Measured scan of single mutants.
Amino acid sequence: VAKRKCPDHGLDLSTYCQEDRQLICVLCPVIGAHQGHQLSTLDEA
C-alpha cells in the first residue's frame, strides 16, 4: 500500500489533526495551517 503524501510539504501523512479531522504531515503543525491544533498519532486516532 502506497503512503499518501501531504500536498503542501510532500511528506508522508503520519499525524491526525483532531480540529480539522484530517491526516497531516509532521511539518503541518510546525510551519503549516495546523499550528496550535490538537493532534493525535495514527495509533491514537
Results as ranks from 00 to 15, higher is better:
L11R: 12
P29Y: 07
V26E: 15
E44I: 06
E19A: 09
P29L: 06
K5P: 03
T15G: 07
H34R: 02
D20R: 08
L27M: 14
L27Q: 15
P7W: 04
H9L: 01
D8S: 11
S14H: 11
R21L: 08
P29W: 04
T41V: 10
Q22M: 12
S40N: 06
L23K: 10
G10P: 01
H37E: 02
I24D: 03
P7L: 06
Q38H: 13
K5Y: 04
T41A: 13
E19G: 07
E44D: 09
I31Q: 14
P29N: 08
S40P: 09
D8C: 07
Q22L: 08
L11E: 12
V30A: 11
C25N: 01
K3I: 14
R4E: 09
Q22C: 14
L13N: 03
C6E: 00
L13M: 10
A2I: 14
V26N: 15
D8Q: 14
I24T: 09
E19R: 07
H37M: 02
R21P: 01
G10H: 12
Q18M: 12
R4C: 04
D8W: 07
P7S: 07
H34M: 02
P29V: 06
R21W: 04
V1W: 04
A2R: 06
G32W: 01
L27R: 14
I24N: 03
L23Q: 15
C17T: 01
G10F: 04
L39I: 11
C28R: 00
T41S: 14
Y16P: 03
E19F: 07
R21C: 13
H9Y: 01
V26R: 15
H37F: 00
D12E: 12
Q22G: 06
V1M: 10
L39M: 14
C6A: 00
D8V: 13
L23P: 15
T15V: 04
Q22F: 03
Q38K: 14
V30Y: 05
D43A: 10
E19T: 12
K3F: 06
D8L: 15
Q22H: 09
C17G: 02
I24G: 04
A45E: 07
L23N: 07
I31R: 12
E44V: 08
L11P: 01
L11Q: 11
L39G: 10
G10M: 08
C25M: 00
R4T: 08
A33G: 11
G36I: 02
A33D: 08
C17D: 02
V30E: 13
D12G: 07
Q18A: 11
R21V: 04
H9S: 00
C6G: 00
D8M: 15
H37C: 09
I24K: 06
Y16Q: 11
H37V: 01
L42V: 13
H34E: 02
D20Q: 03
E44S: 12
Q18W: 05
R4M: 13
V26L: 11
A45M: 11
E19S: 09
A33N: 11
Q18R: 09
R21D: 15
L27P: 02
K3M: 11
V26P: 14
A33K: 12
A45G: 14
A33H: 10
L39Y: 06
C28Q: 00
G32D: 03
